[in-house]
């Protein structure tokens, strides 16, 4: 009898802990894949113009600033993005063009224009693993990874910053991917990633991504301020849109070799 009471007490305690930490998944919740697809397919308008300021902060709180002008257009089956680097001065007028496809069998096409060489160069799609301008974001972190590239599992639902979130674990299907696991807190109904944790190839926590600001712009939920914290190096990148226009009517001619070399 005493043993039975002890077991019941443990179970009650575990249940309370589970309720406090996060709710268990109910049968009505969408599947993990569906949730990630909703994030992937969240409408952000057919185009946007944005000016991004990245502040790189090292473990001694020294700051470095990077500014980028960005144009993005959704063509239905593909997205085109062109970025012009504004600061620091030694990378000024460098531009980066990317065509990414919804068809997961097609690899992205990427080109870079280096003003010192005055040349547009095709670069390997493997460069998506590279860190972007010395920040804590890889090119892949900044783009949209196709939902089918990972196996997803809905761990629980949880309240974070007064937002009801789905907590999804994503394990890459491919071998040798730079992250062994990602855990994402997705805000219900808004389909915004409120937080994301990245684990390195040894399974150790590598980075935390936090959405600091997001708002409804022209009817679209959009994250305007993010922070990526590399906990292993204690290096942070604060990324903020200092100018942003959605449904900006971006001209197709922007996503060309012509514009890459002519610059802003």
């Amino acid at each position: 009898m005493l043993q039975s009471l002890k077991i019941k007490s443990y179970l009650c305690a575990l249940l309370l802990l589970a309720t406090a930490a996060g709710k268990t998944v109910s049968a009505q919740e969408p599947s993990a894949l569906k949730i990630i697809e909703n994030v992937y397919n969240r409408d952000e308008g057919e185009s946007r113009i944005g000016k991004i300021r990245m502040t790189l902060i090292n473990n001694r709180d020294n700051k470095r600033i990077r500014e980028i002008q960005q144009y993005v257009k959704d063509y239905g089956d593909m997205d085109k993005i062109i970025m012009f680097f504004i600061t620091p001065a030694d990378v000024r007028n460098t531009s980066f063009l990317s065509w990414s496809y919804d068809d997961e069998s097609k690899v992205d096409n990427q080109w870079i224009y280096l003003p010192a060489l005055k040349k547009v160069k095709r670069i390997s799609s493997d460069s998506k693993k590279d860190y972007f301008m010395g920040s804590d974001f890889t090119y892949d972190d900044m783009g949209d990874r196709h939902p089918n590239a990972d196996n997803h599992k809905l761990l629980r639902t949880e309240t974070m910053n007064d937002e009801e979130c789905y907590v999804i674990e994503s394990i890459p299907k491919e071998r040798g991917y730079m992250y062994s696991k990602k855990v994402t807190w997705v805000i219900k109904d808004k389909w915004i990633e409120l937080k994301k944790t990245f684990y390195d190839e040894d399974g150790e926590l590598l980075k935390n991504l936090t959405s600091l600001e997001y708002s409804l712009i022209k009817g679209y939920w959009f994250v305007t301020h993010l922070e990526m914290h590399n906990v292993q190096k204690n290096h942070r990148t604060d990324m903020q849109f200092i100018e942003l226009e959605l449904d900006a009517g971006v001209d197709d001619n922007l996503f060309t070799e012509r514009m890459m070399s002519l610059g802003l």
Partner: peptide, 9 residues
């Protein structure tokens, strides 16, 4: 010419 095949340009 330039092209990419399996991550190699």
């Amino acid at each position: 010419l330039g092209t990419e095949i399996k991550g190699v340009v």
